[in-house]
Design a binder for these strands. Structure first.
Lengths: 250, 250
DNA sequence: ACACCTGGTGTACGACGTAAACAGCGCATG
DNA sequence: CATGCGCTGTTTACGTCGTACACCAGGTGT
């Protein structure tokens, strides 16, 4: 039941494609299905990613996909790990460069495939490519004499930041595709909304608006990444580092 | 068409409930619908949040909801802003305390309603409560003599971090509900997965695992928040601050 | 020769969001 | 009081989704 389902997912992701043991007599392959699904998601967003749509782009019937992929959920797992597989391995070097490389890898991955952030929101199964990249990120800070919990915490802090900034970026991309209207035009067209942005209700926002703070924003990724790495540097260079363990699971 | 739809959403969110102008003759109200929807999402997750399910908990038919809410998308907008309305206003004080308060508000909001992070992933319409909290966050750093772009960048950096850590937390909560199995038990039950975690494939991960780094993790939120604020302090205390503007829209 | 597996097809079902037509009620107007 | 209108809730129905299931064609092992 559940157990076997999950183990099947593990096998699907981690074990090499054994289907061609006999003969490559199949016109359709798992790789082709995953590839087509990624292309659909890239072009039309994850909401348009239906089994029918994927099959259509391949020129097969919907149900033919199920001969190569157990279900949509597992197809999503495979897509996510395939995209992680596109990223490069981090080179050896000082910790800050290594973490920065890791962050930029994630960032460019999210930019190329914004739907990733919607899929990893689900209970996804970790795949080999994702784990390999994570391992490389841990390796970047392995020479600093940190406790292993600290290594994990440092890397996840960076990952969380990139996730967060990627999420807003992905939202922007999606809105633009869905409405067919650019972010800027959209906001400019919301006169009904601006009426409510009065200085007494939202003093700081109107001030920032009037002084052009929203029109010429800083690069959110570059700015934030520099700050996060600065903050980690403060931690790493400190003599004694306080430990705050997680007390709750949630 | 689109324009009028969007403006209707604005009115829905920003203008006071005018429906009781005549008489409160309706058994169902918008507030009750939104409230029931939030309860369903809290208890069963946003995937279980269907119009049929909300109507059922209220003891009405599905279509009755549409007398009070234009559609599901707008209901989600209303839910998001209602939850923002539950948070407290930031008190005045030094910048670091103010930002920390803002971050902790978001964090506890996400912990109480993990589905928020799945909903804000969509092209949501900003509501008054969300904007008020954001305004207060800007106010926290308003006395530092920063340029207004910098004010925005500082606050969004914190928000992005909390979003990122909230997202992983929300995933954990969701997995546990869906599978009925705790995070720890789930991982422990994945022998099929552990087989692939060999030192030659994932040297750092196996090392961290063996030294207990995953078993006794640090508090991701506390750790990361402290680092992010440290990094912002470095920026704020610096004499000259480089400007990196956003060059692309995406 | 045969049964068997493997890969692709066609049909069908239940759940979803919601459009549209309808029914009962309270009120303002004759 | 009667009448008709507008608001609230109901019923039915449609199109789309994931996918279970039965079917079929052709290559393979015995």
């Amino acid at each position: 039941m559940k157990q076997s389902d999950r183990d099947r997912s593990v096998r699907l992701l981690w074990e090499p494609d054994a289907q061609t043991a006999r003969e490559p007599k199949a016109a359709l392959t798992r790789a082709r299905v995953v590839d087509a699904a990624i292309k659909v998601a890239d072009a039309e967003g994850v909401d348009a990613l239906t089994m029918r749509r994927v099959a259509e782009t391949l020129g097969f019937t919907t149900m033919s996909l199920y001969r190569h992929v157990p279900g949509k959920s597992e197809l999503l797992d495979l897509m996510v790990d395939a995209v992680w597989g596109e990223t490069e391995h981090a080179p050896a070097g000082p910790w800050r460069e290594g973490l920065e490389f890791f962050a930029r890898q994630m960032w460019s991955m999210y930019r190329a495939h914004p739907w990733m952030l919607q899929l990893t929101t689900s209970r996804r199964m970790p795949g080999p490519h994702a784990m390999t990249r994570q391992d490389a990120a841990y390796a970047a800070v392995s020479e600093l004499g940190l406790r292993s919990e600290e290594i994990v915490a440092v890397v996840t802090t960076v990952a969380h930041f990139v996730d967060g900034v990627g999420r807003t970026m992905a939202d922007r991309v999606r809105s633009e595709r869905e409405t067919g209207v650019s972010e800027e035009d959209w906001w400019n067209g919301r006169e009904a909304l601006w009426e409510h942005f009065t200085p007494d209700r939202l003093p700081m926002m109107t001030h920032i608006w009037n002084s052009g703070g929203f029109e010429r924003p800083l690069d959110e990724f570059e700015f934030g990444l520099a700050r996060v790495l600065d903050g980690l540097a403060v931690f790493i260079d400190a003599e004694d580092r306080p430990l705050v363990r997680r007390e709750t699971c949630l």
